[in-house]
Design a binder for these strands. Structure first.
Lengths: 208, 208
DNA sequence: CTATGTGAAGGCCTTCACAGCG
DNA sequence: CGCTGTGAAGGCCTTCACATAG
């Protein structure tokens, strides 16, 4: 099974299945059918079975999927089992600081190990026991802290530069919050969280 | 042209084209080719032409697209020209408050007109000259302030309830930041901004 | 000769439908 | 008999390629 050939949409749903399974696991439910699992994340039974079939035969015909086992396997597949991904956040504005102590990071195996900014007034201050470092030292910080994932939370006009520097320093995964399109080498994993795009798509569909 | 039949991906790119056009318009560039426009947002020329052809013939063969005109038309199409969409933000935690004064809202025709929370200690306090109201009064607030779009920024366990209440109060567009899958009627426009999903999809692709 | 607009082809993802297993 | 796993069908979106306009 080559991870490159898995549909993006499937990976997205894997996260949602995983979250749903965590919830019903708490309720000591032992088996879940593809229909229930699909309903729980807003898709259908066939989609669930197809998604899971990319990886293995997790289910038992006539019964469904064993909740605990499937949950555990999905965490392995997503790479959030035990493992700790080292995250650096660049840009400590409103959004950046909200992200630093966003509980969700730690909970799911992501660990913020560095915070950077270009503002001399911020450099040296601490956020959640992390000292804000100079973005000019990005490469050194990435290497020293063994950063896996870079979160870009700087103003739009600096986003491309910062992202390129991160990639030059060896980074292969970038999560961009800046309202800007980043152009990076094909092999770099890039995700956008774009408020403007989301709002405008709502606006588009509200008309008429 | 029925807005319902436009591919989601096309609407998404419309926002990106619009942003790119705004940038080069500043530089007094008069015409842009589909190739340049595509390159600017990380797609190709054919895609640009197909996307735009859903709406009109904006271009001039041999020259390209007139930047100012196309920008203006895309703003109209997206519904962000002059018009003001009224936004309510539910949940004034770290994320919620970061959103309230996130400049990007106002700039593009979105106007935060109400902020709500369930925490008695927060209700009555002000954020950016808005008084935090009781989420129990959601329906009244939505009607009084003529809210078009609801932003859900509450903890996951309350997200579904709050969203359902908003829809019952007549809301037809929801932007969800909570790490939870919302199940809402088909006709409601729903967008998710899901950090966990984005991070986990990066994690998935980083393995091996 | 350059660059758009668009039917047709291609590719990817979702849905169907059913064989087969428990 | 219920529910999974999966090839095949279907549908949607992207890419191609060329007729057409300036």
């Amino acid at each position: 099974m080559d991870r490159k050939n898995i549909p993006r949409a499937t990976v997205r749903r894997l996260s949602l299945y995983c979250r749903y399974l965590a919830e019903i696991r708490e309720q000591d439910i032992e088996y879940v059918s593809s229909r229930e699992l699909g309903g729980g994340i807003g898709t259908n039974a066939a989609q669930v079975r197809k998604d899971l079939s990319f990886f293995d035969r997790f289910g038992t015909p006539g019964r469904g999927y064993p909740v605990g086992f499937l949950h555990q396997r999905l965490e392995q597949i997503l790479g959030i089992d035990g493992r700790r991904w080292q995250v650096a956040i660049i840009g400590v504005g409103r959004l950046g600081s909200a992200l630093v102590d966003y509980g969700g990071f730690l909970k799911h195996g992501f660990h913020v190990v560095a915070v950077l900014d270009s503002d001399k007034k911020k450099i040296g201050q601490t956020v959640k026991s992390l000292t804000i470092e100079d973005v000019a030292d990005l490469k050194a910080v990435i290497e020293r802290s063994r950063v896996d994932i870079v979160v870009v939370a700087v103003p739009a006009e600096f986003a491309q530069r910062v992202a390129t520097q991160a990639v030059d320093a060896g980074i292969r995964a970038v999560l961009n919050f800046a309202p800007a399109t980043l152009i990076l080498p094909e092999e770099v994993n890039l995700r956008h969280v774009d408020l403007a795009v989301a709002m405008e798509s709502l606006s588009f569909h509200l008309i008429r």
